[in-house]
Amino acid sequence: MIRMKRANGGGNREVALKGLKAMPEVEAVMPVFSGDYDVIAMVDAPVKVEEIAKRIEALEWVKSLQVLKVEPAAPNPFLEEVCSLPGGECVRWCMQCGMCSASCPNASKMDYSPRKIIALIRAGRRYDVLTSNSMWVCASCYLCTARCPKDVKITELMHSLERLAAQHGLRNTAVATPIMYEAFVDSIRGNGRVHEVGMMMRFYLKTNPFAALRMVPVASQLMLHRRMAFMPRRIKGAEQIKAMVKKAQALGGER
């Protein structure tokens, strides 16, 4: 941020504002109506603020100038990585109001609430974020996204983090959701449609087969009411699915 005072002969304030707006480095300018200074300019590149200040000082209507903040931003590769994903760019817009955490039905079960997750991303703490259970207990109810005053797509962000965690080989071992997701994906890849019984069996075999005992009353009721299909149905275009998956893996990597 650069504060500056007009020279007496420097024309009116409009000229000063126009001159500053024309500079590509200047992100925003605003007039000030009290205090010693007349115009404030926000600079887009904080690292080069001194250099830009010198160029402004050379302008004829500037009498005196003060640079308020010179803090070169530390490089944050994790933030850049998240921002490059579809829907991830909105992390920068967050104002940390906490509406998402207040809305989230599962925030109390998360290691870090959605607001904290965004704060940690902006602090560049990749390991803490990607090994937390937060994104894996997100139920995709989109309440946070619907209520966010800054239009941050938090649910999309959570899904992006799930993919990033897998990409970096980081996993939270306390949650079984990734295994269920994998079983679900395998089911679609094989037959083109999800076969619920097969998917559940695969999930319980991979995690804890004894946990399935708790599901026996539910499963037997579903069976009694003819809501379980025992045989998977394979679609005719299953080969098309295989071809697309193969091509997608070639284009975008495994994830």
């Binding site: 994903l85 799930e162 993919r163 679609i188 083109g192 699915i241």
Partner: peptide, 22 residues
């Protein structure tokens, strides 16, 4: 005719491009 699963949340949460193709 011959529709396939939309992919739902699990596919989109694990693989971006593949889930869009599905």
């Amino acid at each position: 005719e011959d529709w396939n699963c939309c992919g739902s949340t699990p596919y989109g949460s694990t693989r971006e491009l593949e889930s869009l193709c599905i």
